Simulated scan of single mutants.
Amino acid sequence: MNSEEDLDQQRCHKILELPEIRFAGFLDYMGNLIVGDFKSGIIPLKNENERKKMFMEAVLRIRTRQEFDENLGQVEYAAARRKNVVTMTIPLEKKILFIAAESNADIDKTARKIIDIL
């Protein structure tokens, strides 16, 4: 791991300390997981192949939204509340932070806490 990946891994561990967070990971713009992990004791809702597909779809959504940045401003974060989980993506310059949180998470408060960590 290089120093940037070490720093990202530290950020993931800090984010995972938030009680509502299940998973935190940094993705490249091809949808590959650079670093990240589940909170200890969490059982993933998707297998590895399904997660890869979900990561690629998250990157595609971010890229699509970025087409509107000039008029609407940059996306700070995007979130989807599902029955079993909340997913959030936070676009950064060269990567995307992907978060999975408990379904009852307060999206805005959680996003602010995560942005403060970054």
Rank of each mutant, 00 (worst) to 15 (best):
E20F: 02
T89S: 14
K109V: 11
K113C: 06
N47A: 10
A111Q: 01
I99W: 01
K109M: 14
I115D: 02
I107E: 06
I43Q: 13
A58H: 01
K46C: 03
M56L: 05
A100H: 08
A80N: 09
S40V: 06
I21A: 04
V75E: 12
N47T: 08
D106K: 13
M30S: 15
R22S: 10
Y77F: 15
F38W: 09
D28S: 08
F23I: 02
P44N: 00
K95T: 06
I42A: 05
R22L: 13
E4Y: 01
I43A: 10
V59F: 07
L60Q: 10
L72P: 03
E20Q: 11
N84P: 01
M88K: 00
I107L: 02
E4Q: 06
L7N: 05
A24P: 04
P19R: 11
C12H: 03
E4S: 02
L16T: 11
C12Y: 03
G73Q: 04
A78H: 04
I90Q: 01
N2T: 14
P19Q: 11
A79P: 02
L16V: 09
T110I: 12
Y29C: 07
M56A: 10
N32L: 11
L45S: 11
K113Y: 09
T87K: 09
Y29W: 13
N2I: 06
N2S: 12
N47R: 09
L16A: 07
I115N: 06
D28V: 06
S103V: 07
I117W: 00
Q10V: 14
D6I: 14
E102F: 04
L118I: 07
M30Q: 15
D37K: 09
K109T: 13
E76W: 05
L7S: 08
L72T: 07
L118V: 02
D106A: 12
I115A: 01
N71M: 12
E57F: 12
K46P: 00
M54C: 03
D28P: 04
E4F: 00
Q10S: 14
K109Y: 13
I42K: 09
F98G: 00
I114S: 02
S40E: 15
M54L: 11
Q9K: 12
G73D: 08
D8E: 14
T64A: 14
V86F: 04
K109F: 13
Y29D: 13
I21Y: 03
E4I: 02
C12P: 07
M56P: 00
N84T: 08
N47L: 03
